[in-house]
Design a binder for these strands. Structure first.
Lengths: 198, 198
DNA sequence: ACCTGAACACCGTTCAAGT
DNA sequence: ACCTGAACACCGTTCAAGT
């Protein structure tokens, strides 16, 4: 019955959403919970944000501000991105589903392309290298997230019981590789060297 | 009021879910719609499947049966996977969120590791190479999916209006690279060669 | 312009009941 | 064992109304 100014604006909403995503996962993010955390009706959010999907875009873009500025070495940036996505899995899943075309993301891409050109790449090579490194980082983060909590056996009907020892070995081997940050760094190096300024 | 056998079983349910996922996307997959497609109550599904998340795991695993058997060249397999994920984006998003430990996925991993060992890799090198190639394929597919429908400008509040030409250029460059299958193949080659059997 | 309250059309899942 | 019907505790979003 009040309807008085609640100091609501886009940044406040995005910050609240980010906290909820970190605490309760991607499925825990609902307009109603965000509004409750701000002491406001769910409908109040719609005056500042276009809807849940747009809110998620803003959350993803905002989360990128936690990463270090790109200077010359792209490796540092992607290692930091990888660490962040592993630590905040909901963000990785959100990035997998959303376009990633916010202002922060675009600015980072511009800086990355400029850095690559400075080191001798032409426009195409720079774009290819950046896209490859980003794709690999996202995929490696998602794969690692899904492998980290090694699941109980027998959850999947249809796996022959007598094959499970072998299945277990395969899973353990792959999980070990997925959590190996040395491997991650080596692949980044490989991708950086893969498109040489011939 | 009937409650008569409806020929329902797990495979029928998974197939129906797969059709819905392809037609309506990941968000379009609901227990109620799957059940409606089968002419059955939503609750009937729960006698054959543990819940929506488990159903999604089964859908993801089942979708992998459409891929070619892994013989010796892993490239063919990952190129086929990439094509499938781009053509069926909901599956890519589901793979990004689910563990990928079904029987079909595990069998494919076993065959891939065996093929790598035959070509001279030891266990660790084989696992690293497989994980890298899979991670990259998943990430590249997701990135490409999100870049393909080039969005309208001005959707993101906070992008300075006078920067939009530059922003546009960056986006176009990256979109072009993302849809370049030649680049995708070259990176796969690089990853295959990156962990040489020294 | 900013916010509320009620309502609509959905969700996943539980539970008692039927055959 | 297999299925139904009603119900519970949620969703996102629209819309008329209030200040």
């Amino acid at each position: 019955v009040v309807a008085r100014a609640a100091g609501l604006d886009m940044d406040v909403i995005v910050s609240a959403a980010l906290r909820i995503v970190d605490a309760d996962g991607l499925d825990g993010l609902t307009m109603r919970r965000v509004s409750a955390a701000l002491g406001v009706t769910a409908m109040a959010l719609y005056h500042h944000v276009d809807g849940k999907e747009r809110l998620l875009d803003l959350v993803v873009d905002q989360s990128l501000t936690a990463l270090p500025m790109i200077e010359d070495d792209l490796r540092d940036f992607f290692i930091a991105l990888h660490r962040m996505l592993v630590a905040r899995p909901a963000l990785a899943q959100a990035m997998a589903a959303r376009p990633l075309e916010g202002p922060v993301a675009t600015a980072a891409a511009e800086r990355a392309l400029a850095a690559l050109r400075r080191s001798g790449f032409n426009d195409d090579q720079a774009a290819n290298t950046f896209v490859s490194m980003f794709s690999y980082t996202l995929g490696a983060s998602l794969y690692r997230i899904s492998r980290t909590p090694l699941r109980a056996t027998g959850e999947f009907p249809g796996v022959d019981a007598d094959r499970t020892p072998a299945v277990h070995r395969v899973r353990r081997t792959l999980a070990a590789s997925a959590t190996d940050e040395q491997r991650f760094r080596r692949v980044l190096d490989t991708l950086l060297a893969g498109e040489p300024p011939h």
